[in-house]
Design a binder for these strands. Structure first.
Length: 663
DNA sequence: ATTCTTCCTG
DNA sequence: CAGGAAGAAT
């Protein structure tokens, strides 16, 4: 049992790791999916930010606060201060001192006076956008757009255990004290958060710089547009130009050219262009901006990510190194994980574990690594002879995480089409002696393998669940880090989990799957079950129900075996060793009828061995009269509990349950 | 206190 | 199979 304990501790590490992984997300990528105004900067810049010259600088850092704010403040250099801003009103009364450029926009009042209706309308639009983005999540609870779903998921993820240190979302007026960020963490985390804040600050400065360049570009347009209107709004002290660094002046001077304006407007998404349908080529200034933006992001983002990982999850550092430098994992790490994953298998098979270690596709390694937990996942099939056969789908195990529907079909056909492929099937000649030897077969080592939950888990067409809020909650509770894509939320199709239908209840398909799994494991831990019923939203109830199923399975199994053992005794069988369960046995038929009613699954030979041993044990015990002892079955249970084998990875396939049901 | 397991009952 | 009780293990 200690092995399982270790395993579960390991799992805890995994989850906590993910939790920490999540922890960093709000600061960075994940925020792109949050209503925080911070991260969607670029989209905002490109689409909404530039509203004439009334570009609201607060859009970069602040939130709905900015809506009511006058333009006479500027505090973007230090996010902490921005977060600390209590409210617009307070802030207007007592402006927070800002490093260096506090008066940058202090001279916009005159220009505001000149705002015509059009500009005001645009401003209102921007404000509404900002406002919408700053809505508290509760107000978006029923926004079930993919993005909202994902955002919601992130929100829930933030509530995961040990997630209390999640950085509060900046825009929330009542919560947005920066001081809540760092102090909430432990000392190390606080330090890490401090680093993160600095990184963020840097990042934001970069972005602000770029935004100002944008400002320049668009300002030139406005200058041209409003030149006729009034001259007094032209060169304003404190204008972006004045704020710009010298090195950015080059691009600025280019972008100042009036001919750029239409293209700029179009790219900026200004409806100003609604009257002018002409589309010019991409202006060079924009190219410059684009490249600069990309470059800055490319430079800063990895640093930030690495820093975050290093800080929040020290182990990740080494993992990162591995990913970067050597995709094939070192055998040590793999062994470590394999050992940890051995769970309920006191009869260790160390040789097998080590032997299984050294394969893996780079993708798999990346995925596994990205999941924060590289396990010695191995997709090979096994035979009772102890000869590991290469799977027909060698990469099945690892590629499951990103399996396409086609792959899933292959999985299923392998699951069921045993007559041809005999994926897990027993070759007709298996040696029961292997069982007695403590089963040195190189059985699969998937115990505890962290399933790489695919972002593109196939839709389960047979039982599509209505996307009720409850279901979305289920989605939300998904440990996002587990999918290995937590670092790339935006790289997904935008609705990563929208296609994952988490079952909030166990279905007949799950029951059938569980029954088939019983052929491999009689005593699955809840942890194991969670890794094999990935389409189930586990709750305490679900878990116990699943466990109860296996308990019932065992009950039936032991009853049947005992019955046949007694029957054999009555029939005068002398040697227990002659009791072998074959596929022709009555016992097998009874069991197969129960667990594999359709007989559409080839019962693994290993199960026959286990059944044979169980039968012999019962036979011997009854013959020895041990059944007088009320707990005479306990030793048998103990023996059998050690004979679990690994469950083929195919059982993890999304939709497996449903397809099994319909097969 | 919680989880897991068995046993019993329906 | 589910529900519940009881005990063991953690």
């Amino acid at each position: 049992m200690d092995s399982r304990t270790g395993f579960e501790q390991d799992r805890d590490c995994v989850t906590s790791g993910h939790g920490q992984g999540l922890k960093l997300e709000p600061c960075f990528q994940t925020d792109s999916l949050l209503p925080s105004p911070r991260t969607p900067l670029i989209p905002q810049l490109l689409s909404h930010t530039v509203v004439g010259r009334n570009l609201d600088p607060t859009i970069l850092f602040a939130s709905s606060q900015a809506v009511a704010l006058p333009h006479d403040y500027k505090c973007g250099a230090c996010p902490g201060e921005v977060q600390a801003l209590p409210s617009p009103r307070t802030r207007a009364l007592a402006p927070v001192p800002c490093a260096g450029d506090g008066d940058q926009l202090s001279n916009q009042h005159p220009r505001e006076q000149l705002c015509d209706q059009h500009l005001q309308a645009k401003r209102a639009r921007v404000e509404s956008i900002i406002q919408g983005m700053s809505l508290p999540p509760t107000s978006q609870a029923f926004d079930m757009s993919p993005e909202a779903a994902f955002r919601h998921e992130r929100e829930k993820g933030g509530e995961m255990p040990q997630e209390s240190k999640r950085k509060p979302r900046v825009p929330q007026q009542d919560v947005g004290a920066a001081g809540q960020v760092a102090p909430t963490g432990g000392s190390s985390h606080g330090k890490g958060c401090q680093q993160l804040k600095e990184q963020l600050c840097f990042l934001e400065q970069q972005l602000r710089w770029l935004q100002e360049k944008f400002y320049q570009v668009c300002d030139s347009e406005d200058a041209a547009q409003t030149q006729e209107d009034s001259e007094k709004e032209q060169p304003l002290p404190g204008e972006p130009e004045d704020r710009l660094n010298k090195d950015s002046a080059t691009a600025t001077s280019n972008s100042r050219k009036v001919p750029l304006r239409r293209s700029v407007l179009e790219v900026c998404g200004l409806e100003e262009a609604e009257g002018r349908g002409d589309t010019g080529g991409l202006p060079s200034a924009l190219r410059v901006l684009s490249q600069a933006l990309k470059h800055e992001l490319a430079v800063v983002t990895p640093q930030v990510v690495d820093s975050v990982l290093k800080t929040v999850w020290p182990k990740a550092d080494s993992h990162i190194q591995k990913h970067h430098h050597s995709l094939p994992m070192g055998p040590d790490a793999r062994r470590e994980y394999s050992a940890a994953g051995k769970c309920r298998k006191p009869l260790a098979k160390p040789s097998a574990m080590n032997a299984s270690g050294s394969l893996g596709s780079p993708q798999a390694e990346v995925l596994l690594g990205a999941s924060g937990k590289s396990l010695g996942s191995y997709a090979g099939s096994f035979s009772s002879k102890g000869v590991r056969k290469s799977s027909r789908v060698p990469s099945m195990g690892y590629s499951l995480g990103s399996a396409t529907p086609v792959q899933h079909s292959q999985l299923l056909s392998q699951l069921l089409g045993y007559r041809k492929h005999s994926l897990w099937g027993s070759d007709s000649h298996e040696s029961p002696s292997a069982l007695e030897r403590g089963c040195p077969e190189p059985l699969n080592l998937h115990w505890g393998t962290v399933k790489l939950r695919s972002s593109i888990v196939r839709q389960q067409q047979h039982h599509p669940l209505p996307l009720s809020p409850a279901n979305m909650d289920s989605l939300a509770l998904l440990p996002a880090g587990r999918d290995g894509h937590s670092e790339l939320p935006a790289a997904n199709d935008g609705a990563p989990f929208a296609s994952t239908h988490m079952q909030e209840a166990l279905t007949p398909g799950h029951l059938k799957k569980a029954k088939l799994m019983f052929f491999f494991t009689r005593y699955p831990s809840s942890t194991l079950l969670k890794t094999y019923f990935l389409d189930v939203q586990f709750s305490r109830c679900i878990t116990s129900q699943l466990i109860k199923w296996f308990s019932n399975f065992r009950e039936f199994y032991y009853i049947q075996v005992e019955k046949f053992a007694r029957q054999a005794l009555l029939e005068g069988v002398v040697d227990a060793c002659t009791l072998q369960v074959s596929r022709d046995s009555e016992l097998f038929r009874a069991l197969n009828m129960h667990y594999n009613k359709g007989n559409d699954f080839e019962v693994p030979g290993r199960f026959l061995e286990v059944a044979s041993l169980t039968l012999q044990e019962f036979f011997s015990a009854v013959r020895a009269g041990k059944d007088a002892d009320p707990s005479w079955k306990k030793p048998i249970y103990k023996i059998i509990s050690k004979l679990d084998s690994d469950i083929p990875e195919g059982f993890k396939a999304a939709g497996c349950s449903q397809e099994l049901l319909h097969s």
